[in-house]
């Protein structure tokens, strides 16, 4: 289906509402980071990636690896929306023996790689992109990193090698919400200046508003530059869409109480009503 920007913005609101709903249901979840990356995943799965339940086992499919695996609730609701499984499966989120656990696992249809330990996604994607080049395949490889995650040295080993191998079929996105568990990324371990760093490592870099559907589409659709891996630094707001969670570090991992949950749902209803009004 071809969505307009407005329709995708509307979908993002619904996906965010689902994230909060299922985290409340499960009693656990990485709320803030899931809400910050929803627009990125929404654009990837609804506009960019050549991947679907029908072609998921095809060697020609595009690959998406969520290196910041803790934002799994965002991935789950987006995969459910894309038809990889029924959203009601998330009734078992975080339950004993459920496949829907606190980090991505390939037991869930649509999940490309098991992740969770930070700093693993980019090296794996370097290998996957390299295999695509060697096999002369047209597929593209995408991964999502957190800005806090960049403190893991393995990312920089992979950064060097992706440029060395000229992997322009690889696009990495940083969900740059500027917060990590213990506080501001700038205070814990400053990863800036990101643009200069990634450019110095030989990547083509674009910095955008990570909640701007049109900007995300433009940045993610094609390699930014032939012969170089692409880095999209997406400036986002942790907890986006829930007023009292936005840019508040404690919602890195947190479950709203009943009162907070009602307030969050009310907020989404209002935002959706406004969006529907704008679209009609």
């Amino acid at each position: 289906m071809n969505y307009t920007d407005g329709q995708l913005e509307q979908k993002s609101l619904k996906l965010r509402r689902s994230v909060v709903k299922w985290i409340k249901h499960a009693g656990a979840g990485h709320t803030g980071g899931s809400l910050s990356c929803i627009d990125i995943l929404n654009v990837l799965y609804n506009r960019i990636l050549n991947v679907s339940p029908e072609n998921f086992t095809s060697p020609d499919r595009d690959r998406y690896v969520q290196s910041k695996g803790h934002a799994v609730e965002a991935l789950f609701v987006v995969l459910a929306d894309a038809g990889f499984f029924d959203e009601s499966d998330l009734e078992t989120l975080c339950c004993y023996q459920s496949h829907y656990v606190g980090h991505p696992t390939r037991k869930v249809n649509g999940v490309e790689q098991n992740t969770g330990g930070l700093g693993h996604g980019l090296p794996i994607c370097v290998g996957t992109a390299l295999a695509g080049k060697m096999d002369a395949k047209d597929y593209r490889v995408y991964t999502l990193l957190g800005d806090g995650e960049l403190a893991e040295g393995s990312n920089w080993e992979a950064a060097m090698s992706a440029a060395h191998y000229k992997l322009d079929n690889l696009t990495a996105v940083i969900d740059c919400n500027t917060l990590q568990i213990a506080g501001r990324t700038a205070d814990v371990m400053n990863s800036e200046p990101l643009v200069e760093k990634w450019e110095a490592f030989g990547w083509a870099v674009r910095r955008i508003d990570g909640h701007d559907i049109a900007a995300l589409t433009e940045a993610l659709r094609d390699p930014l530059e032939a012969g170089k891996p692409s880095m999209v630094i997406a400036d986002t707001v942790k907890g986006r869409g829930v007023s009292f969670m936005e840019d508040v570090g404690k919602w890195h991992h947190g479950v709203p109480n009943d009162e907070e949950f009602a307030k969050a749902m009310e907020g989404f209803d209002m935002q959706l009503a406004a969006k529907e009004g704008a679209l009609s």
Partner: peptide, 9 residues
């Protein structure tokens, strides 16, 4: 990690 990516293909 790169080896795992190649192996997955």
């Amino acid at each position: 990690g790169l080896a795992a990516g190649l192996a997955s293909c």
